[in-house]
């Protein structure tokens, strides 16, 4: 019974949060609702007994949404509403409804036809973390490593793009040197 209550509570909360994210025209509401929705999703993992994935969901998405906040802070006055350019409303509503139905059909088709089997069923007496590790480093080793390489590429690309003045560290300078740099910028 508790599982059912928890499931419906968090399902309702998650849907409301993502609805706010999509419909509101204020950056701060949208970001906060997004963060809350992402954190509420972790509840489903906890209900299903996948504690490790639940905790990872919390850690990853708090960090990710925090980075979004940083961008939101830079680009918008977050206390004011953003004026959105409204396109053709019918196309937007139609396409998003179609996409939502498609996603539901894709994920519910195997369940309806009863073809869903656990390829790697949970082993009794083995912890959650160990099970994730077992699957990750046997069956899914190649995708895992490819994902790692992609992240590495993205990191290197980010450093190259952002690192124009990497040799210049304000932290290691003395105050007089910082002043010198400032004056140089003013003069040039």
């Amino acid at each position: 019974m508790f599982e059912a209550i928890a499931f419906y509570l968090f399902a309702f909360l998650t849907i409301v949060m993502f609805f706010i994210t999509v419909t509101t025209s204020q950056a701060l509401y949208a970001l906060s609702a997004l963060a809350a929705g992402m954190i509420f999703i972790s509840a489903f993992f906890f209900i299903l007994g996948a504690d490790f994935l639940g905790a990872v969901q919390i850690i990853v998405y708090t960090g990710a949404v925090m980075a979004l906040y940083a961008f939101g802070m830079m680009f918008f006055d977050s206390t004011r509403e953003v004026k959105e350019k409204q396109g053709n409303k019918y196309i937007i509503v139609g396409l998003s409804t179609l996409a939502a139905i498609l996603v539901v059909v894709i994920f519910s088709a195997p369940m309806v036809s009863d073809k869903i089997v656990a390829l790697y069923p949970a082993i009794d007496g083995v912890g959650n973390t160990q099970e994730v590790g077992l699957v990750l480093f046997t069956k899914y080793l190649v995708p895992f490593e490819v994902a790692a390489i992609m992240l590495l590429v993205a990191m290197v690309a980010g450093i190259v793009l952002a690192g124009k003045k990497m040799d210049l560290s304000i932290t290691l300078m003395s105050d007089s040197e910082i002043e010198e740099q400032k004056n140089k910028k003013v003069l040039s």
């Binding site: 701060l28 906060s32 963060a35 954190i39 906890f46 504690d51 490790f52 639940g54 905790a55 990872v56 919390i58 850690i59 708090t62 960090g63 925090m66 906040y69 802070m73 977050s78 206390t79 912890g127 959650n128 973390t129």
Partner: peptide, 25 residues
């Protein structure tokens, strides 16, 4: 829970949303 320390660090990290949201709002 058998992932105690991850859970603690993750939830404590959410706590920083307080200063962030309070400051931005």
């Amino acid at each position: 829970v058998n992932i105690g320390i991850l859970y603690i660090l993750g939830v404590m990290a959410i706590g920083l949303y307080g200063p962030l949201l309070g400051g931005m709002a």
